[in-house]
Amino acid sequence: MSLDKDQVRQIATLARLKLGDDEYAESVEKLSRIVDFVDHLSEADTSGVIPMAHPLDIAQRLRPDVVTEPNDRDRYQENAASVSDGLYLVPKVIE
């Protein structure tokens, strides 16, 4: 196994994913296989090759920094589980 349980636990924490105990065992096995598989890339000779930043090798378009979106807050908040007075509610963060 190229990954162990502690590494998978660390990855899951970084990714903000809570896994069940049975999910951990499976993730260690399957993620290890994926990592072994993508390790084949190390065989490619990439000396002097520029990493690709855009599939068409062009720079991303920029737009003027002006407000273009209307305020649709109420409409967007219809999909939120918990809101009050236009604010999204989350568990208490500050004591």
Binding site: L41, A44, T46
Partner: peptide
């Protein structure tokens, strides 16, 4: 991984 893959991606393109 990531940087290497983006280099290989260039080779493929």
């Amino acid at each position: 991984y990531y940087l290497k893959a983006q280099q290989v991606r260039h080779l493929i393109a």
